[in-house]
Design a protein around this nucleic acid. Structure first.
Lengths: 177, 177
DNA sequence: TGCAATTCTTAACCTAACTTAAGAAAAACG
DNA sequence: CGTTTTTCTTAAGTTAGGTTAAGAATTGCA
């Protein structure tokens, strides 16, 4: 989807750049998610922490992905997710109010985000089905084919967290070739 | 969100009514999902079937909910889900091509569906986190508070399927009060 | 209403995945 | 670099949840 020069200018004005160090937070549990972030380079993750202090990763956002806490961002409610950087990362930040004003001014961009969200929902549905119907070993194999780059760039304990198992058990699965 | 009389007429022309008996399919694995369905009354479900023949429910759609296989509907690809009726059900069917043409003619409706999809994604994310971080008993309790009506209108084996456990195990959980 | 089909329950046994712990390997960073 | 921190592995013991099977209860529908 191409924007006109004028449209592109409008977007640039509304977006803010930010650089994050490894482990730096973009967003913390309890805050209202102000921004949706577009990852220029690096990698972010969103995750929840359960009663026992264990982390559960909802999403990875490598280069060219958007990430936010959709619930908090859309409903303006305090979030139950953290978002932080797994690698040194540069992002573009778009606030909800800016996004909504862009939607009024450039319908093409409301369409862009509509499609983005449709695709995200389709992926999320796929993940739910996989989680309900496949054993851990197969979920790991699917993860490897779906995110081949991540396997080598982030610690494998995060992959365990994403597919819903402990790092120890993933280690065991991997040792079975 | 209110439509003008003219807008409402446009929508009615593009939508098709359909009545389904209990257990009747709206959509089958392998087909491309032609329609997104709005449930006027009754209840539909979407589900996948695994290699062992077990069903895994992705979504319930009681009154006033939309249901489709988002992936198949959006990408025009064969679907891995079935959609059928848990109760006698009346739906309104909207094809993807009609939907896209409505988006061009009535931007208000592109917005309506954008918001619908944002909310669906937020819910789906919540479900993922719950699945990763909570034991079955708590997932069942949350289901009961989230869908209080469904508990009494559909067989409980479908609830077991939705929360990712066997009917036998749900029965055991329930017997512990 | 009554019969057939579906759903729910219970219980004994089983297993995928978790917990704990401790040492080995790898990566971060001054 | 070398040292500190993080991550990965292995292994023994445990548990949440699955499997199988059979009878009881409920529901659908002729």
């Amino acid at each position: 989807m191409r924007l006109t020069e004028q449209e592109e200018l409008t977007v640039r004005e509304l977006v803010r750049e930010k650089t994050l160090k490894r482990k730096q937070f973009l967003h913390r549990v309890g805050e209202v998610a102000q921004y949706s972030a577009f990852v220029v380079d690096g990698c972010l993750r969103s995750y929840a922490i359960d009663q026992n202090g264990f982390e559960h990763i909802l999403q990875f956002a490598p280069e060219n992905w958007w990430i936010s806490d959709m619930y908090s961002f859309v409903k303006n409610q305090p979030s139950e997710l953290n978002i932080d950087a797994l690698l040194p990362t540069n992002v573009l930040l778009l606030s909800r109010s800016c996004q909504l004003s862009i939607f009024d001014r450039i319908p093409k961009l409301e369409r862009y985000f509509r499609i983005l969200t449709e695709n995200a929902l389709a992926s999320s549905n796929h993940r739910t089905i996989d989680y309900l119907s496949l054993p851990a070993k197969i979920r790991y194999q699917k993860f490897c084919t779906l995110y081949p780059t991540l396997i080598h760039t982030i610690p494998q304990k995060y992959i365990a967290s994403y597919i819903g198992i402990t790092p120890e058990f993933l280690s065991k699965l991997r040792s079975e070739y």
